[in-house]
Amino acid sequence: MTTPQPQRLLCVDALRGFDMFWILGGELLFAALFTWTGAGIWHSLAGQMAHSDWHGLTAYDGIFPLFIFLSGVTLGLADKRASALGGGARRALYRSALRRLLLLLLLGVLYNHGWGTGLPGHWDEVRYASVLGRIGLAWFVAAMLVWHCRPKVWQGVALAILLGYWALLAGHLDNPAATPNAWVDGHWLPGIHYRQMPADPEGLLSTLPAVVNALLGVVAGGLLRSPRQPWSKAVLLAALGLGLLALGYLWSLVFPLNKTLWTSSFVLVTSGWSALLLALFYVLIDLLRLRWLGLAFAVIGANAIAIYLASSLVDWPYVAASLFGQWLAALGPSAQPLGAALALLAVQWLVLAWLYKRQIFIKV
């Protein structure tokens, strides 16, 4: 007996698109609005569009964890079990997962050395750690656990990772060069690090707790897939998010929030916000039926990795200026940054809308 495939939820693609929106140029809007209006609220929001230097959390710090969380949501919605498959189907599943992992690792290296730089001529000058690589590794490990273990087992593994990581890093948080992450990356991560930092933000050791972001996404996906009433699912998702936030912020009193190290408290807090956002999008799009909102962001989310990679390989600001340059020049000096940001977003969105309308989805 085969398990029926769940209906695809528009809210998941929409939230993935909302996440990517800020990477594609949305982060420029607040600073541009401040330049245009001078209102302090935009200046405060613009400050949230940059990563924390070390300890702390900004809204921009949550973009990457949300993407990993959503990769886990798709696992929870699919609810695959390798033990339920025949030998041939199981081998095909493994090949597909391994191919996805290797492709994301390769594309991550390509992204790191996109237009304007190019791949170095020497292997030891390549940056191998990447955002796409971490997404691939976190998803792959989470998939192997979910496909082969009962929920109590992989949930226990997630808890062990968080507690073990805390024990490993305790007392080594003040000096970036003295962290276990710096030692592991210095000895075992080939090539160069991001901005020559002692510990690469997408390094080896800090990828381990990122697996838990994906596993918590599996929990959320399981809630959405459950036979409960739709509004009950929304309430449970919100409760999951609030519970994770409470635990994470309490834990941060002794194990600070830190994106570079991807601390255990950072995992819980970012997963909490991710669950709350998923609950919000589920209510607005799939329950209240605001389909226009869902489609506006789903256009981006349906080809999220493709447009992320293109942001490294295509000079989108040049394209936007080529199309809208005369109109932008006609704006006043204070309005030009806002016009440039909107033009940048419009060009990318129109390309993605063209792909979406023709049902062209570039999947990895």
Rank of each mutant, 00 (worst) to 15 (best):
R100M: 15
W54M: 05
G87W: 13
Q359V: 06
L10S: 07
R150P: 00
L29S: 02
F69G: 08
L261S: 08
L223G: 01
W54K: 06
D61V: 07
F21S: 06
L216H: 01
G191M: 03
A346W: 08
G72M: 10
L268C: 03
W316C: 06
W22D: 00
T2K: 13
Y356D: 12
L168M: 09
F67E: 09
W183V: 14
V299I: 13
A335M: 08
P180M: 10
L280M: 14
A320K: 02
L70N: 10
N213G: 09
Y249D: 04
L205P: 02
G217D: 03
V109I: 13
W354C: 10
V184M: 09
P120V: 01
E27Q: 12
R90C: 11
Y60T: 04
Y356R: 12
R289Y: 09
G325M: 03
M20H: 05
F30Q: 00
G294I: 10
R90Y: 11
S96Y: 10
L169Q: 15
R8D: 12
A160V: 13
V269P: 00
W123E: 06
L137T: 14
K233G: 05
A210K: 00
R225H: 07
V12Y: 04
Y194L: 15
I362G: 09
L163I: 15
A298D: 06
L163H: 09
A321H: 15
R95N: 09
A199S: 15
G86C: 12
A14E: 00
F140K: 07
D200K: 07
F140C: 12
L338I: 03
H193V: 12
K259I: 08
L77D: 07
V314F: 02
M1D: 03
Q7Y: 03
P65Y: 12
L268N: 02
E202T: 02
V299A: 03
V73H: 04
A298S: 14
A310F: 13
R90K: 14
I41L: 00
W231A: 14
F18S: 11
Q48G: 10
P256Q: 11
L290F: 14
K233T: 08
L205I: 08
L338Q: 03
A39Q: 11
W231Q: 14
W349K: 03
A296D: 00
A39D: 09
W183P: 03
Q326R: 15
T179D: 08
L224G: 04
A330R: 15
F34H: 07
V283M: 12
G272I: 06
N303C: 07
T58A: 03
L15W: 01
P190L: 10
P256K: 11
V73F: 10
L293W: 03
L216Y: 02
R95F: 14
L247G: 08
G191Q: 01
W166D: 13
N303S: 10
